[in-house]
Design a protein around this nucleic acid. Structure first.
Length: 884
RNA sequence: GGGAGUGUAGCUCAGUUGGUUUAGAGCAUCUGCCUUACAAGCAGAGGGUCCGCGGUUCGAAUCCGUGCACUCCCACCA
C-alpha cells in the first residue's frame, strides 16, 4: 500500500445514507454474499428463520438478523465459505387473515369465492406486498445470499411438503380422527396446542341451580359453579366426588337443565375437586376437554351447542344464532329471572386465545389430520441432551426436554386455503386414499370402488399447518427433495452451523426441524442453536403493536444509520438476556461512528506531513504495545463470539478503538506540528486501523468498509479481506503499557489537583530502581505529561509534587507555587486505605488454618501482597514526611 | 399447580473451577478544559450492606439452605 492516503477530500462527517447504498450495491454486484460449494474452504451456513411473508421489519427481526449477520461476516473474515439463506414463510393463517381483511375492504366476502378465486387473490397479494421484509433486511446490511431466496410455497417446496406427508402417512405416522381440538372461531380453523396462548382474565363465576327430579328433605336444587353458563344447554350430566358427603344421596339421581328442562344424570367421579365451588361440576362434553374425557368414561351424550363461527347452534334452542359471549350475559339474566342464579362472584381464570387472531379458543370435537410424534421425538431429544446440538443458553435444554417427553400428537390440518393442500382424496362412498395427483388418486380409489366416476372424487379441502412446511426449511432450501442422493449443495452446507432464533418457537419450529432432519437426512439440521432474548422497551415491557412501543425501524436506520442501529441493538443484548431497547444506544453508536471518522481525519493529517525514516520512532513502544493489545483483544473477541457473547465482544472492540487506539496510541505517535512523521509508524498506524475495521466490521459493516477503502487497504473490499492469524502475546509489553497509562493518568490528576494546567511544563523524576523497566516507555510518558526532562534518582526532591505510583515514588517539579494540602490529603487517604488493606492480609496470614490449608501459591500471593502494601505504606510515609 | 431463571453503582450488564488487592465496564452524574481529528470532544473524579437471613470453609458476590422480589416456560381445575 502507499503511505499517503488516496487524494480524496473527506467529508466533515460520515454520510451514512450514501455509504450504505454505495457499499451494499457494490457487494451485491460483486456477488460477495453469494456462496457456492468449493473444496478449499469450510462452509459456515445459516438459514434465516423465514419471516412471515406478510411481515414488516420490527425490533425482534433487527436483533435476530443483526446477530446472524455478525456471525456470517465474522466467519467470512475467518475464511469460511459463508452461506446465509434468505426466504419467507407463507404463514398460512397469518397471511390468510390479511388477505381476508383486504378482500373485506373491497367488499368481497371470502365465503362467496371459490377456492381457486381466493387463492388467485392471495397470490396477487403475495406478489404485491409479500417479502417487503426482505427488502428491509437489505437496509440493515444483511449479507444474505439473495440468489437463494426461498419461499415455503415455491413449487419444489410444495412438492417436498406433500411428499413428506405421503411418506409419513405410509409409515403410519399420519392419521385422521375425531378428537377435541382448539377451534379458532374467527379464522374458523383448528389450531395446534402451541398456537394457543393462555392468559389470565377477569371472569365471573356463576352459581347456577339445577332442579332435582325428586326433591330431598333438605334440598330442591343442586348448584354448580361455572364460568361458562352459555354452555349449560349442552350439559349432559352433573358430576360430584364419590366421597362428598353432601351429595351421597343424589348420586345416580337426575336433575333438569334449566330453561330447556332436559333431564340429565348426577354422576360421581374422582376427578372432581370437592373444595372448588359447590363441589358439583356441570359436564359439557362438547365444549371442554375434561368434560369430554368424563363423557367418554361415563358414556354421556355429546351435545354441540356452538357453531364454527362462535354463534350458538340449533341445539341452543332460542339462543340459536347469537354470539357465545352475548349469550353468556343473556342467559345469566334469563336464569336469574326464573330464580336459577344463586350468586355471581368475580373470578380470575386462564383462557386460551388464538395466537394469530386473538379470538377466544373454543374446545371443539372435530375430524382432523394428526401426526404421531413419539417416535420422531425420541432421537430428536437425544441429540440435544447429549449436546450433539448445542443450545445457547443451555437452560433451554430443560424446556426442550420437558416438551419432548410429554409430546402429544400434532394436529396438522387447518381449515384454510392458503397453504399446502392435504393430498387426501375421497369418493362419494367415504373411501379415502392418499395420492400426489388426481390421476393417482382416481386409480387408487378405483381399487376400492369399481364403479366410481371420476367427477365424483374430491380432494380434502384442508391445508397443512404452516409449521408442517417450516420444519423442512434447512433441507429444502438446498433442494433436498428432488435430489436426495448426490446433492452436492446439501452435502456441503448441511448440517448448517448455527440457528439463531427466538425461544418462543422452540417447539413450533426448532424441535420439529430436528425431527425432520433426523428422519429425512439422518443428520442434525444445525450444530448449535442460539436463542436471542425478547426485545423490550426501556421500562422492560415487551414490544408490541398494541402498546405502540415498537419504534419504526426504517426511520431509525434513516436517522441514525444502519451501523448505529446495529450497534445500539447489539451492545444492549447480552448473551441469552432480553434486550432493553433504548435509543441512547443508537446515539452511542452514532458517536462511535463519528469518533472513527475523526480518527481517519487525523491519519490523513499525519499523512499530509513530511514523512521521514526515523528508526527510533519505528521501534517505539507505542507500536510494540498496540500490536500486542490488538492481538490480545482479537483473541478475546474470538472466544466471546464462539460463546455468542456478542455484546461483550463489541464492548471490547469499542474500547480498543476508542481508548487504546484513539486516546492512547494515536496520541503517543503524534509528532509536534513542525516535525515529520516516521514512514513505518504511519504505515503501521494504517495497518492497525485496518485491522480494527475488520474486527468491527461484522457489527458495523458500512462505516468499517468506508474507512477500509479510504485507508487504501488491499483488497479494498473488506469482505474479500481476511483477519490476520493470531500470534502469541508478549505479556510484559502489555503490562508496561498498563503501567505507562497509570503513570500518565496519575500525573495528569496530580497536575489538576495542584492547580497546574494540563499543558504546564514539569520536570519528572523517576526512581533509579525502575529505570530499566520504564525506559522503553519513558519518552512517551514524558510527552504525555508535558515533561521537558526525565531524571532518574533515588533522592527525595524538595519543593516538588510527590506521587506514589504503583510501588514507587516520583516527583514533579514545576515553576509554580504549590499548595501541598491536596497532596497531603491524597496521601493520607491512600495511607488509610493501605493500612486497612494490610490489616486484612495480616489477619489472614496470622490465621494458622489459612496457612495450613490454603494452596501454597495462594499463601505466597498473600505474602507478596503484604510485602507490597508495606512498601507502599513506607513510600507514602516518606512522602508525607517530605511535606511536613 | 409444576419447572426454569434473575437479583452486583442511578440504569444496562461483566465477574471463568471459591483465593491477583477492601468488586469491574459502558451509559448517566459531577469537576476542569474550545489542547487545530473529534465540545458529537479531551482530561479527571465521585458513586456499591454484591436482595435479606442462616450455613459450609482458613477464606463466599461465587457453594448449600431458607425467606423476599421480579421474569419466563409448561399445565384441562369448573
Amino acid at each position: 500500500m502507499s503511505v499517503s492516503l488516496p487524494a480524496m477530500a473527506l467529508d466533515k462527517n460520515f454520510q451514512h445514507q450514501a455509504a450504505e447504498k454505495k457499499w451494499y450495491d457494490l457487494w451485491i454486484a460483486n456477488g460477495d454474499f453469494n456462496s457456492k460449494p468449493n473444496t478449499t474452504q469450510k462452509a459456515y451456513t445459516i438459514v434465516i428463520p423465514p419471516p412471515n411473508v406478510t411481515g414488516v421489519l420490527h425490533m425482534g427481526h433487527a436483533l435476530n438478523n443483526s446477530v446472524q449477520d455478525v456471525l456470517i461476516r465474522y466467519a467470512k473474515l475467518k475464511n469460511y465459505n459463508t452461506c446465509w439463506v434468505p426466504g419467507t414463510d407463507h404463514a398460512s393463517i397469518a397471511t390468510e387473515a390479511k388477505v381476508v381483511a383486504m378482500l373485506q375492504e373491497q367488499g368481497i366476502d371470502k365465503n362467496t369465492l371459490s377456492r381457486e378465486e381466493f387463492l388467485s387473490h392471495a397470490w396477487v397479494w403475495k406478489e404485491k406486498y409479500g417479502g417487503i421484509i426482505l427488502q428491509q433486511l437489505k437496509k440493515l446490511g444483511c449479507a444474505l445470499d439473495w440468489n437463494r431466496t426461498a419461499f415455503t410455497m415455491d413449487d419444489n417446496y410444495y412438492e417436498a411438503v406433500i411428499d413428506v406427508f405421503i411418506d409419513l402417512y405410509n409409515k403410519g405416522y399420519i392419521y385422521r380422527g375425531v378428537k377435541m381440538i382448539n377451534w379458532d372461531p374467527k379464522a374458523k380453523t383448528a389450531l395446534s396446542d402451541e398456537e394457543v396462548n393462555h392468559k389470565e382474565v377477569q371472569s365471573k363465576l356463576y352459581y347456577v341451580k339445577y332442579k332435582l327430579e325428586e326433591a330431598t328433605n333438605d334440598r330442591e336444587f343442586i348448584t354448580v359453579a361455572t364460568v361458562r353458563p352459555e354452555t349449560i344447554l349442552g350439559d349432559t350430566a352433573i358430576c360430584v366426588h364419590p366421597n362428598d358427603e353432601r351429595y351421597q344421596n343424589l348420586i345416580g339421581k337426575h336433575c333438569f337443565v334449566p330453561i330447556i328442562n332436559r333431564k340429565i344424570p348426577i354422576i360421581a367421579d374422582e376427578y372432581i375437586d370437592i373444595e372448588f365451588g359447590t363441589g358439583c361440576l356441570k359436564v359439557t362434553p362438547a365444549h371442554d376437554i375434561n368434560d369430554y374425557n368424563l363423557g367418554i368414561k361415563h358414556q354421556l351424550e355429546v351435545i354441540d351447542t356452538i357453531n364454527e363461527d362462535g354463534t350458538m347452534s340449533a341445539a341452543a334452542a332460542m339462543y340459536e344464532g347469537m354470539d357465545r359471549f352475548e349469550v353468556r350475559k343473556k342467559i345469566a339474566i334469563d336464569l336469574d329471572a326464573i330464580g336459577h342464579i344463586e350468586k355471581i362472584e368475580d373470578y380470575k381464570n386462564q383462557v386460551g386465545f388464538s395466537e394469530r387472531t386473538d379470538a377466544v379458543i373454543e374446545p371443539k370435537l372435530s375430524m382432523q389430520w394428526w401426526c404421531k410424534m413419539e417416535a420422531l421425538a425420541k432421537p430428536a431429544l437425544d441429540v440435544v441432551m447429549d449436546d450433539t446440538i448445542k443450545f445457547y443458553p443451555s437452560k433451554f435444554k430443560n424446556t426442550y426436554r420437558h416438551w419432548m417427553e410429554n409430546i402429544k400428537d400434532w394436529c396438522i390440518s387447518r381449515q384454510l386455503r392458503w397453504g399446502h393442500r392435504i393430498p387426501a382424496w375421497y369418493d362419494d362412498k367415504g373411501n379415502l386414499v392418499i395420492a400426489k395427483t388426481e390421476d393417482e388418486a382416481f386409480a387408487k380409489l378405483q381399487e376400492k370402488n369399481a364403479t366410481i366416476q371420476r367427477a365424483t372424487i374430491r380432494q380434502d379441502e384442508d391445508v397443512l399447518d404452516t409449521w408442517f412446511s417450516s420444519w423442512l426449511w434447512p433441507l429444502e432450501v438446498f433442494h433436498w427433495n428432488k435430489q436426495k442422493e448426490q446433492n452436492a449443495e446439501l452435502d456441503y452446507y448441511y448440517p448448517t452451523a448455527t440457528l439463531v432464533t427466538a425461544p418462543e418457537i422452540i417447539f413450533f419450529w426448532v424441535a420439529r426441524m430436528i425431527m425432520a432432519g433426523l428422519e429425512y437426512k439422518k443428520q442434525i439440521p444445525f450444530q448449535q442453536v442460539y436463542f436471542t432474548g425478547i426485545v423490550r422497551d426501556k421500562q422492560g415491557r415487551k414490544m408490541s403493536k398494541s402498546l405502540g412501543n415498537s419504534p419504526d425501524l426504517l426511520k431509525l436506520i434513516e436517522d441514525y444509520g444502519a451501523d448505529a442501529v446495529r450497534f445500539g441493538v447489539l451492545i444492549a443484548s447480552p448473551a441469552g438476556n432480553d434486550l432493553l431497547f433504548d435509543e441512547a444506544g443508537l446515539e452511542q453508536g452514532k458517536l462511535f461512528i463519528n469518533k472513527i471518522w475523526n480518527a481517519l481525519k487525523l491519519l490523513q493529517l499525519f499523512s499530509e506531513k513530511e514523512t521521514i525514516d526515523n528508526p527510533e520512532q519505528t521501534d517505539s513502544f507505542a507500536n510494540q504495545w498496540f500490536e500486542q493489545r490488538l492481538q490480545q483483544v482479537k483473541n478475546l473477541v474470538d472466544e466471546d463470539i464462539k460463546e455468542f457473547k456478542l455484546s461483550e465482544a463489541l464492548k471490547k472492540i469499542y474500547s480498543l478503538i476508542w481508548d487504546d487506539y484513539c486516546s492512547w496510541y494515536l496520541e503517543w505517535i503524534k509528532t509536534p506540528q513542525d516535525q515529520g512523521m516516521d514512514k513505518t509508524t504511519l504505515k503501521k498506524a494504517y495497518t492497525y486501523f485496518g485491522e480494527l475495521m475488520q474486527m468491527l466490521h461484522p457489527y458495523m459493516p458500512f462505516i468499517t468498509q468506508e474507512i477500509y477503502a479510504h485507508l487504501g487497504m488491499q483488497p479494498q473490499n473488506i469482505l474479500e479481506s481476511r483477519l490476520a492469524t493470531s500470534t502469541s502475546i508478549q505479556q510484559d509489553i502489555i503490562l508496561l503499557g498498563e503501567q505507562a497509562k497509570q503513570i500518565i493518568t496519575q500525573i495528569r490528576d496530580a497536575k489538576i489537583k495542584n492547580g497546574l494546567k494540563p499543558k504546564d511544563d514539569i520536570s519528572l523524576y523517576l526512581p533509579q530502581t525502575h529505570k530499566d523497566s520504564l525506559s522503553l516507555a519513558a519518552n512517551i510518558i514524558a510527552k504525555q505529561v508535558f515533561s521537558s526532562t526525565i531524571t532518574y534518582t533515588q533522592e527525595p526532591i524538595d519543593q516538588s509534587i510527590s506521587l506514589v505510583i504503583d510501588k514507587f515514588q516520583c516527583y514533579l517539579k514545576t515553576e509554580k507555587e504549590i499548595d501541598q494540602s491536596h497532596q497531603k490529603e491524597q496521601l493520607e487517604k491512600d495511607q488509610a486505605y493501605y493500612n486497612g488493606f494490610l490489616m486484612s492480609i495480616e489477619k489472614k496470614l496470622s490465621n494458622e488454618k489459612f496457612v495450613q490449608n490454603a494452596k501454597p501459591e495462594i499463601v505466597e500471593i498473600e505474602l507478596k501482597k503484604k510485602k507490597d502494601a508495606i512498601e507502599k505504606l513506607r513510600i507514602i510515609e516518606e512522602s508525607l514526611k517530605l511535606l511536613s
